[in-house]
Simulated assay, not measured.
Amino acid sequence: MTHRPSQRAEPAPHYLTEERREIRKLAREFAMNEVLPLADELDPQHGTIPDSLRDRMGEMGFFGILIPEEYGGLGLGVFEYCLVAEELARAWLSVSGLLARGNGMGGGFTEEQEARLLPRVARGEYLGAYALSEADAGSDVANLACRARRDGDEWVVHGTKMWCTYADEADYLVLFARTDPDKDPQRPHRGISAFLVEKERGSFPAGLTGTPVRKIGYFGWNTWELSFDGLRLSADALLGEEGRGFYLAVSGLEVGRAHTAARAIGLARAALEDSQAYVKQREQFGQPLADFQSIRFKIADMASRIEAARQLMYSVATEIDSGGRCSKEAAMAKLVASEMAERVTSEALQIHGGAGYTTDFAVERHWRDARLTKIFEGTSEIQMRVIADELLGRA
């Protein structure tokens, strides 16, 4: 059981232009009318996001928010991207994650590839997945063991990858593998290359198999452990320069962290709105829960924390769109929003009492999924290290 927010008018700050408010309204209506009912139905069953919803997202241009208009995208910025991500996450975190399978996945494409592929990405016809992390290289993404060796005009890949969400349904993978067999222990990031692995949607090519990860949340799609056993790629599958794949992997961190902050905020907002509705209808000791000061203070605290995280995220998105570097601030936004989301969703579950610890109410979904935001796109500990290193210098 879930609740819909009231439609009370909100004051619009100057940075929420008319165009941005319209985009947010469009995304909010789509999320509440089309995504939320599916989430309430499918998440308890560990069901899969239907193709029809993905196709609707393509029709609405959501996969091309960051893609230039010349390639069929909307040509908008990270601010608009985060607005849409928050609204989708308010309904279902997994669908807001699907948003990133189009936007931002074209890094390393040549001009020819951009002209050929980005229009399809913008329509949702060519979506990708990252094959980066490994079982022994979670946050330490420079410590990759998966290898690609040259064999004539081909690359041959051997090794494993972990945490590759959407690998089965994606149209291509961006694979990171070590191409220099002599790893420099002082500079382990050198010698890593990136590859474009094109595949049929819904299957894996020869030389690649996968096992679904048994997750406690983030349902709606599969997350995979991948095994590469002689996968062959053509020489032109290399993305960017050989040996410089690590820089491609980290080039989009600021956008990814802003996007994750937006998703965490959407989850927390869902928990807040569900709690607001619940305390108005639930009675104890002859009066609504909304009349108890302890509950009212919880709601006030939750709303304040959400708004503080949102304003930080807006600031980071604005800085990215202006062309400035903000690795420290992006790490702060991701850290603050994800930690806030876990706290707010936990408070919401507490407000619901025993009912919150059932699958009859969506608050348990918000709580489970919020916990993940502290792990992916860099753990909270990694964000604190980034922040501390910028403030104090590297230890």
Score class of each variant (00 low, 15 high):
Cys82Lys: 01
Thr379Cys: 06
Arg269Gln: 13
Glu22Thr: 13
Thr223Trp: 09
Ala355His: 03
Cys326Arg: 04
Gly64Asp: 02
Ala370Lys: 01
Arg56Ala: 11
Gly286Ala: 06
Ala341Thr: 10
Glu225Arg: 14
Thr48Glu: 06
Gly73Val: 01
Met57Glu: 02
Ala258Val: 04
Ala300Val: 07
Glu364Asn: 15
Trp221Met: 12
Gly324Cys: 10
Ala341Tyr: 11
Gly102Asp: 01
Cys146Trp: 00
Gly107Tyr: 04
Thr359Ile: 07
Ala142Val: 01
Asp182Leu: 13
Leu208Cys: 09
Ala194Val: 13
Gln287Lys: 15
His189Lys: 15
Ala303Asp: 09
Asp51Arg: 10
Val316Thr: 09
Arg343Thr: 13
Gly73Thr: 02
Arg263Ala: 12
Lys280Leu: 13
Arg54Gly: 03
Thr209Glu: 09
Gln276Glu: 15
Pro50Ser: 03
Tyr71Met: 07
Ala145Glu: 06
Arg24Gln: 11
Tyr81Lys: 06
Phe63Gly: 01
Trp367His: 14
Ala261Thr: 07
His189Ser: 10
Leu208Pro: 08
Met302Thr: 06
Gly58Met: 05
Phe204Asp: 07
Ile23Tyr: 12
Arg305Asn: 00
Leu253Pro: 00
Arg282Ser: 04
Glu377Gln: 08
Ala100Pro: 00
Gly207Asn: 08
Gly207Ile: 03
Arg21Ile: 13
Leu53His: 02
Val157Asn: 02
Leu144Ile: 15
Gly378Ser: 03
Ala177Asn: 08
Ala135Asp: 01
Leu83Pro: 02
